[in-house]
Design a protein around this nucleic acid. Structure first.
Length: 156
DNA sequence: GCCAACGTTGGC
DNA sequence: GCCAACGTTGGC
């Protein structure tokens, strides 16, 4: 079954990496505290595929693929006072931050680096190569996604 | 570690 | 509702 949509999700590997996802198998993608990113996450569908992108990393880039297995999950960290992602404005009845559950699919033989992405795609084709782009959740169109997959799966 | 480019906050 | 000040992101 083909994924319905593709996403790109940023993470700092020193906080949470694709290896961490592979180890745990499945996680709630917590900590997103930007409304535009959240709004994108709210439109995710079970079966969507997500490129995992390592930011603040060496190298930075897309390192693999995950799958959305659950949607509209209330991010539990918003209720946790000890969490850096705690949001006192959220209540159990009215949660502000929803996210998805992800499961590991694959790690690429080598990262598709930001440099490669910039060589291959214009900012119009792929949002992450836009200068100053800080959004941590972005849609990726199907054709671009297929090209990233081909580059990533190529042995290097 | 620097700093440009953001997003958010809060005084007014 | 404006917008200056501030905090954060993330490439380099």
């Amino acid at each position: 079954l083909l994924p319905m949509k593709y996403w790109l999700l940023k993470t700092e590997p020193s906080v949470f990496s694709l290896s961490d996802l592979r180890r745990s198998g499945s996680v709630i993608w917590d900590g997103v505290r930007n409304y535009q990113a959240r709004n994108y996450l709210r439109t995710a569908t079970v079966g969507d595929a997500a490129f995992v992108y390592h930011s603040n990393a060496e190298p930075t880039g897309v390192v693999g693929l995950a799958r959305v297995t659950e949607t509209l999950v209330d991010d539990p960290t918003q209720f946790a006072p000890e969490s850096p992602y705690f949001d006192p404005r959220s209540t159990l009845g009215e949660a502000r931050w929803q996210t998805v559950r992800l499961e590991f699919i694959e790690e690429f033989p080598a990262a598709v680096t930001l440099m490669t992405l910039k060589e291959q795609f214009t900012p119009d084709e792929l949002m992450v190569v836009r200068k100053g782009m800080r959004l941590s959740v972005m849609p990726v169109n199907d054709e671009v996604a297929q090209r990233i997959l081909r580059i990533g799966r190529r042995q290097s």
